[in-house]
């Protein structure tokens, strides 16, 4: 048994430690997580004007302030007995506000906080054992997901293309939040009983534009197909099987075009999701598509019971 500790767990908001016990087979047999900072927010609200909470509590997190703000506003609605009087338009504004933060947080989480793990040199050592194909895939992973601060053997690599593009979307969505909520992080829209701002027609048009531009990022970088096509064939597919088939057929099509020239670039249709699906998973990449190598990330999880693994429901892609 080996004790492996990750501390600090970087690339998150705040400070965190993970303690694990790893068996000789490389299986994690025990784990604890620890928050390493105490800020006493609950206490700082006591004996003060309760209305402050909608602007105060969000300062617990600079990445997801909106949900804390809305939660506080909901609690205040209850406290003042006005929960059933909050106008529908105010609820819509709350939802739009939260949704914008939700999308921006996806950009941050996937590309800035988690994505850099795919550019870990440990994966280079696995991939580059497999000739031109392995080298090409490593080139894509490191060229897309390298974080801003990195080093290897005295060399600094430029931040990855997907990483940088996701930061642009993050910034754009935050601008959208600021448009209706003053600024971001720590927007000022939420208030007991509703919200403090009613958007103009121009604001609404601009918000649509912000989100449309982000949808183009999702097409060009994330999926490699328009989001509408993806949703139509997965989320709205007639059955789980047809959704799986759509993904696999798409991957097969991409592979047919790329295996000769080892071009796995965004431009050749390899969005980040297809690249990750094909080369991240042993089951998809090696077993189903016959690829010579994968990162075997589907083998590193803790889903012992195959029946609990559903399409997209647990972060993996299909029924075992």
């Amino acid at each position: 048994m080996v004790e492996v500790t990750v501390d600090p767990l970087s690339r998150i908001e705040g400070h965190y430690r993970i303690n694990t016990e790893v068996s000789e087979d490389g299986v994690i047999t025990d784990a604890q997580s620890n928050g390493l900072v105490f800020r006493g927010f609950e206490r700082a609200l006591q004996h003060h004007d309760p209305r402050d909470a909608a602007l105060f509590t969000m300062r617990i997190c600079g990445v997801c302030p909106v949900c804390h703000s809305i939660t506080a506003a909901n609690a205040l609605d209850d406290l003042f007995g006005v929960a059933d009087q909050v106008p529908k338009n105010a609820l819509v504004m709350r939802n739009v506000h939260q949704a914008m933060n939700f999308i921006a947080s996806h950009a941050a989480h996937i590309y800035v906080l988690w994505g850099p793990d795919l550019a870990n040199p440990a994966y280079r050592d696995i991939l580059t054992q497999h000739g031109d194909l392995g080298n090409a895939v490593w080139g894509e992973l490191s060229g897309r997901f390298m974080p801003l601060v990195n080093q290897e053997g005295g060399t600094r690599y430029p931040a990855g293309s997907s990483y940088v593009a996701a930061l642009r979307e993050f910034r754009r969505l935050h601008e959208g939040i600021a448009l209706i909520a003053g600024k971001m992080p720590h927007p000022v829209l939420q208030h007991v009983g509703g919200v403090v701002y009613s958007p103009t027609v121009a604001d609404i048009q601009k918000l649509i534009s912000y989100v449309s531009q982000t949808a183009r990022f999702v097409e060009n970088f994330t999926l490699g197909v328009p989001p509408e096509t993806w949703i139509e064939n997965t989320y709205r597919a007639s059955s789980p099987e047809s959704a799986v088939n759509f993904v696999i057929e798409r991957l097969q099509e991409l592979l047919d075009n790329s295996l000769n020239n080892n071009d796995f670039s965004h431009a050749s249709g390899w969005g980040d999701v297809p690249l990750f699906a094909a080369f991240g998973s042993e089951l998809i990449g090696e077993t189903m598509l016959g690829l010579p190598v994968s990162l075997k990330l589907d083998r590193s999880g803790g889903y012992k019971d195959p029946n609990t693994i559903g399409f997209l429901s647990y972060g993996v892609f299909f029924q075992a």
Binding site: P8, P116, P121
Partner: peptide
């Protein structure tokens, strides 16, 4: 040089000892 949110590395300890190099 160092930024906890924007950096590649994590702090890694194996049996209480620092593992790897500053690259990782």
């Amino acid at each position: 040089l160092y930024h906890e949110v924007l950096m590649m590395q994590q702090g890694i300890f194996v049996d209480g000892q620092l593992a790897n190099t500053s690259d990782l």
